[in-house]
């Protein structure tokens, strides 16, 4: 399991890294998405650009009521951030599910998002939180909503010369609850089906309801059906209806680990559990 030969450059700063990006280069940070591909020779780049040590891509900063997270921030660093835990407990909760202790020590949030594994845990979180991704190339910078970023399996809105540099999280409304429910594939730990829910309430009524899935299809997706909860109290039977409607008609993945029908069923269960838990959290006083 030895990769093909390539050149390696450790970028001194972001602008260096962006300049170095070109035909058949790959960017490496934690390396946990890329290294297995290299070892199996499924990726055969001419050059690797190491951005893992770039300070400007690391760190968690307050921004308005939200946060800006550098793309090369490791999962471990996310878990160690008190601010993140206070503002987005959902991210902390989901991060504990990613990979394993060693993977979380090395893997980066930006690397995982750009890799866009269709069964990864973090992408649906970004959809529900309505994050914005900053994509940079040597010619400039643009912002893309997470909701328009994930295109398919291992496919994103990133252009070949672009780098995901920052994840921007908007402030959450008051009275919000979030939750993740997932069923793991026993070997890889990736989700067979997972659902992320966000519910905000004001004066006893739901003002916002977002629901996103991972593991079911080619890419994570938001379920429009969640909107049916808005302006209701979110009783159990409605939540179940929403969960069912959310997966209705979805063409689910079918593989050795789970047939499509089972994945859809799990998706529904995960959606119900996540919505129920998010609602309960939103209803909690304080």
């Amino acid at each position: 399991m030895i990769p093909t030969s390539f050149e390696y450059v450790r970028a001194k700063n972001l602008s260096d890294a962006l300049k170095a990006m070109g035909k058949n280069t790959k960017v490496i940070a934690g390396g946990h998405s890329l290294l297995p591909l290299l070892r199996f020779r499924l990726a055969q780049p001419d050059m690797l650009i190491d951005i893992g040590q770039l300070r400007e891509l690391k760190g968690i900063k307050r921004s308005g009521g939200g946060l800006k997270i550098g793309a090369a921030t490791t999962y471990r660093e996310l878990l160690e951030s008190k601010e993140l835990k206070a503002l987005y407990p959902l991210i902390a909760e989901v991060t504990e599910h990613i990979g394993d202790l060693q993977v979380r020590n090395a893997g980066t949030i930006g690397g995982g998002l750009a890799h866009a594994d269709p069964a990864a845990d973090m992408p649906p979180v970004m959809l529900v939180l309505d994050a914005t991704f900053v994509l940079q190339s040597k010619t400039g910078k643009r912002s893309v909503p997470a909701r328009k970023f994930f295109k398919g399996p291992f496919t994103t809105a990133l252009k070949p010369n672009e780098l995901l540099t920052e994840i921007q999280l908007p402030a959450l409304p008051k009275g919000v609850g979030t939750a993740y429910a997932s069923f793991e594939q026993a070997a890889s730990g990736y989700a067979l089906a997972g659902a992320v829910a966000l519910i905000a309430i004001a004066k006893g009524l739901i003002t916002r309801a977002d629901l996103a899935f991972t593991g079911l299809g080619d890419a994570p997706f938001l379920a429009p059906a969640a909107a049916k909860l808005v302006a209701t109290t979110g009783d159990a039977s409605l939540i179940d209806q929403v969960a069912q409607a959310a997966v209705a008609g979805v063409e689910a993945n079918d593989d050795v680990h789970a047939p499509a029908a089972y994945r859809l069923h799990l998706g529904r269960v995960a959606a119900r559990r996540a919505l129920t838990q998010a609602l309960a959290q939103a209803q909690r006083p304080g």
Binding site: R10, G31, H32, L35, D50, G52, Q102
Partner: peptide, 12 residues
């Protein structure tokens, strides 16, 4: 910090 050394290049 614990990392998997087979998922890391020596140059890193």
């Amino acid at each position: 910090r614990a990392v998997k050394s087979c998922t890391m290049l020596a140059v890193q």
